[in-house]
């Protein structure tokens, strides 16, 4: 487990404008190794743009983003082999089998023993029954497990997850969450996720950053937020924040 004073992810005064629209407005936060943090907010709150900037796929208008101490605006290729991501908005080539896809990504990420790593992931994520099947012929649950295998192929120290259990049945979603928890605890990885599933956030995350109109509206552990707003669960807190009922917390 990495126990470094350097935060796994550090964001300072981050701003992103799309023309006249300010999508992200002065965000600052730091995420230590071995923790899971959620970005919560309604549509257009700035979650995806923030994650895009942490990945280095979106250039900030101003501010700083560092992952494992590396500037993601100018030196992202120095650290990309130590991080990975999963998102329902990307896919893996459908005609390639699961094994072929994982082999390609293992080579791209510089994995040393490719066959052994794929075998370990296949056992760990229960891919064996369909590992030689084309990726396009898998069910939604199987595809999510394969996407998770790709996200874990290089044993990343930082994982960025966008809706990691979207469109999954409760059993498969629970299975994925358990796996993520075990991986984080075993490797000391930092996980930053965006999700609309409040149950998932309550279970997985030690911290929630609530976004609204590109700004941090609140930032605390799930239990603390629930207590602060006098609610019984995180979904009610989310609604309070989204509908501007901030006084509930005061």
């Amino acid at each position: 487990m990495t126990q470094d004073a350097t935060p796994a992810i550090e964001v300072r005064s981050l701003v992103k404008n799309y023309g006249e629209v300010r999508a992200v407005d002065g965000l600052s936060f730091a995420i230590p190794a071995g923790s899971t943090t959620a970005l919560l907010g309604g549509n257009g709150a700035g979650k995806s743009t923030t994650i895009g900037m942490v990945m280095g796929l979106v250039l900030p208008t101003s501010g700083e983003v560092r992952v494992l101490g590396t500037d993601m605006i100018t030196r992202r290729h120095d650290v990309l082999h130590r991080m990975n991501f999963e998102s329902p908005y990307v896919d893996m080539p459908h005609r390639l089998t699961v094994r072929q896809n994982l082999r390609v990504f293992a080579l791209l990420y510089g994995v040393s023993d490719v066959a052994a790593r794929i075998a370990a992931l296949a056992a760990d994520l229960d891919l064996k029954d369909f590992i030689d099947r084309p990726s396009g012929k898998l069910s939604a649950g199987q595809k999510t497990r394969v996407a998770l295998a790709k996200a874990l192929i290089n044993e990343p120290e930082v994982m960025l997850l966008d809706e990691p259990t979207a469109s999954l049945d409760p059993d498969t979603a629970d299975w994925i969450r358990s796996h993520l928890e075990r991986y984080r605890d075993r490797k000391g990885a930092a996980i930053l996720l965006a999700s609309h599933n409040m149950g998932e956030v309550e279970r997985l995350c030690d911290r929630v950053i609530m976004l609204k109109k590109g700004r941090i509206e609140d930032d605390a552990a799930p239990a603390e937020l629930i207590r602060r707003y006098g609610r019984s669960n995180l979904e009610e807190v989310f609604l309070d924040v989204a509908r501007g009922r901030r006084e509930a917390a005061e």
């Binding site: 796929l57 290729h77 990975n84 990307v90 896919d91 791209l108």
Partner: peptide, 10 residues
């Protein structure tokens, strides 16, 4: 839809 995977890889 694999471009994101490649651009986020090394």
């Amino acid at each position: 839809r694999n471009l994101g995977n490649l651009l986020m890889s090394p």
